[in-house]
């Protein structure tokens, strides 16, 4: 038991900006140039200049803009204090910004004729730091580079900050932009998921006892590294442990949200879900609506279960060998 509860959420994706847009689930892929594929699920409704204005956004990477946007939307209407924190997940930050920085250095007359304003945006902590600057959040501010495990990694890191008394509340989120650079890197890595997408999703997590209505309790998170090359067994062991610790039977789980990494990992994830749970468990796959949003998928899984009362399990697998699951209880408010 982490003792932490989720009391707010938001998301930005190809479905649009905000909760209602994601729940409506109407997304169409957009034509893209320069990547290995010619379509992607872009968050086309999120126009940086319109959402954030033109001041300070000129050199900004899209990941940072998405981070600022989603954190702002989660916190809208909430009172923050000086110990409100932000923790965001990523794969490697903005691959496009990093590529362009190096390209400038290699192609201009002098190798140091680069735009110094873009440098901070090339760092992986840019999205979380920008969200803090934009929304004046002076509490713990951290970035977890967890690939597809980022959702669970961030949630665990954030709940740990709360348990240790280091934050009054934490926006736990994850961000992934679409760019040609990312698409090509993924292609060469042998990616097998659905059409690439970009997006950001985040939840506000605070200690139990908050006066706000509880959307979910975070019961537990378990991760494993499949050092023997068997992610299915490692995930199954994590699932057993998380249920055991919460004293819950597999049959009590009402929803499983998949990370859908595709390929063999995707099959392993399905196999664990099929073996552990009965046909009565609903299986949701948020990537069907938002595409393969990389590091952001975990948070899209978390927000996908928030309107499904009962016990929900979020699973995750990354091709670096990490697997994991998180157990939430969504109260029935009807």
């Amino acid at each position: 038991m982490t003792g932490a509860v989720v009391t707010a959420w938001s998301a930005i994706s190809a479905c649009g900006v905000g909760r209602a847009a994601l729940r409506a689930g109407q997304a169409r892929p957009t034509r893209v140039d320069g990547g290995p594929g010619d379509e992607a699920f872009l968050a086309a409704d999120f126009v940086v200049d319109e959402a954030l204005g033109t001041k300070g956004t000129g050199s900004m990477d899209r990941s940072s803009a998405l981070g600022i946007g989603v954190v702002g939307d989660v916190l809208a209407g909430l009172a923050v204090d000086e110990r409100t924190g932000v923790v965001l997940g990523t794969t490697s930050g903005s691959a496009q910004t990093q590529l362009e920085f190096t390209r400038d250095s290699l192609t201009r007359r002098k190798p140091y004729f680069v735009n110094p304003a873009t440098m901070p945006f090339a760092l992986m902590n840019s999205a979380a730091a920008q969200a803090a600057i934009w929304h004046k959040l002076t509490g713990p501010n951290s970035t977890i580079a967890g690939g597809r495990l980022s959702g669970l990694g961030v949630l665990r890191y954030g709940t740990r900050l709360l348990a240790a008394g280091r934050a009054s509340g934490v926006v736990c989120g994850a961000v992934e932009e679409y760019s040609a650079a990312r698409a090509w890197l993924e292609e060469h890595r042998g990616r097998r998921g659905s059409l690439l997408g970009e997006g950001a999703a985040a939840v506000f997590v605070e200690p139990a006892g908050s006066p706000r209505p509880v959307l979910a309790e975070v019961l537990g998170i378990e991760t494993r590294v499949a050092v023997d090359g068997d992610p299915e067994a490692a995930l199954a062991s994590g699932v057993r442990r998380v249920l055991e610790r919460a004293a819950i039977e597999a049959g009590d789980v009402t929803t499983v949200a998949l990370s859908a990494p595709g390929g063999l990992l995707g099959e392993a994830e399905r196999a664990v879900a099929d073996a552990a749970f009965s046909g009565l468990t609903a299986v949701v796959d948020p990537a069907e609506a938002v595409g393969d949003v990389g590091a952001a998928i975990g948070m899209f899984q978390v927000v996908a279960v928030l309107d499904r009362p009962g016990f929900a399990l979020v699973t995750a697998l990354d091709d670096d060998g990490t697997v994991g699951c998180g157990l939430l209880r969504v109260p029935d408010v009807s």
Partner: peptide
Amino acid sequence: TDVDVSTVATA
């Protein structure tokens, strides 16, 4: 195997 792994990217 039984580890919480995190790469913390706070520059």
